[in-house]
């Protein structure tokens, strides 16, 4: 059963084309102890060419969203309800075969561990060819070598990398290969799930710079998933904050860092270390993330919230646009 927390209307400016639209998505993992509500009523949308970030602690459901958008959730996980419209088609209703064709072609994933997602016994070229074969693109065509070379150059690698095996590449190079693979069929949405969390900071910049340039070339939208607020501040246009399976705040990156509204968003921003001043408080967020098996009633953050009110534990706040382009799910901002 999908619980009836009616999410509000779409948090976007209507004049721009929406590439992706997620409506009231529910993803549960069915365990012996009961259903773990990993994603519990999430709605957001993505404009064409936009970079959107999803942040949250581990277990907040952000990676589950990434996999759900690609329909890669495996049992015991299941999409229990909601819609994912990609260029007008609801992915949730597609057959497995229809969905397989959408992947890479329209929506692609750059996963977290680059080193694990490449086949270790295949040359880089073969990994591209496999992808093409899967999408019925004639792999014998003479232009193929050219095309793979172009893709590799586009992500800042030499054409010769096509002849190499994954173990001959560094972590940063492998992640670039993964980006090249992801863009090989010019998708309109690229999902990057912590694409740099295993990389050093200098290499991280290079990989993100590459991602940004190919995304701008293609005019694709990007969903960047992660917990590094610095990376979000520097990369995305708009940011959504996840907490315990729900989106609690969506705002432009400037509003989010300059004027966060949700108490969780405020504490998250306040706990960021900076290079400005050593006097900054070494402040964490007290308490622990609630169990998704038995999420707290009402607002999921009420157990840790410094501004908790009486009805927070009973009434679930709805994500509402309280300022232009700034959405928040908190009773503090509801009109009396």
């Amino acid at each position: 059963m999908v619980e009836e927390t009616l999410s509000a209307e779409e948090p976007t400016a209507a004049e721009l084309k929406e590439t992706l639209k997620v409506e009231d998505l529910h993803v549960y993992f069915h365990t012996a102890a009961g259903a773990v509500k990993a994603v519990n009523g999430v709605s957001f949308s993505l404009k064409s060419g936009e970079r959107f970030g999803l942040v949250g602690e581990s277990g907040s459901g952000k990676s589950t969203i990434a996999l759900s958008l690609l329909r890669l959730i495996k049992p015991p996980g299941k999409i229990e309800g909601g819609h994912v419209f990609l260029n007008g088609t609801d992915l949730v209703t597609l057959t497995e075969e229809q969905m397989r064709r959408k992947r890479l072609d329209e929506i692609a994933l750059v996963a977290q561990g680059a080193m694990n997602s490449l086949n270790p016994v295949r040359r880089i070229r073969d990994q591209f060819i496999l992808a093409y074969k899967d999408h019925d693109i004639d792999v014998k065509r003479s232009g193929l070598e050219e095309r793979i070379g172009d893709l590799l150059t586009r992500v800042g690698l030499n054409r010769e990398v096509a002849n190499m095996f994954p173990h001959e590449l560094s972590g940063g190079m492998k992640q670039r290969v993964c980006i090249a693979l992801a863009i090989s069929l010019s998708p309109s949405v690229i999902i990057a799930d912590e694409p740099t969390s295993a990389l050093d900071v200098v290499v991280q910049w290079q990989v993100m710079d590459t991602l940004r340039s190919v995304q701008e070339d293609l005019g694709a939208s990007v969903i960047l998933i992660g917990h590094d607020m610095g990376l979000m501040a520097q990369f995305v246009d708009r940011l959504g904050v996840m907490y315990a399976g729900k989106l609690v705040e969506i705002a432009t990156v400037r509003d989010m860092f300059g004027d966060p509204l949700h108490p969780y968003g405020q504490m998250l921003i306040a706990s960021l270390p900076s290079l400005e001043s050593r006097k900054a408080r070494l402040e964490g967020i007290p308490g622990i993330t609630p169990s998704l098996l038995n999420p707290p009633s009402g607002c999921p953050f009420h157990t840790r919230c410094p501004k908790v009110m009486d009805h927070c534990s009973s009434v679930t706040p709805i994500l509402q646009e309280v300022r232009p382009d700034h959405w928040v799910a908190c009773h503090l901002y509801e009109e009396a």
């Binding site: 607020m229 990376l231 979000m232 501040a233 520097q234």
Partner: peptide, 8 residues
């Protein structure tokens, strides 16, 4: 190379 948490 450190991405600082300030978009500006």
């Amino acid at each position: 190379s450190i991405p600082l948490p300030d978009p500006d």
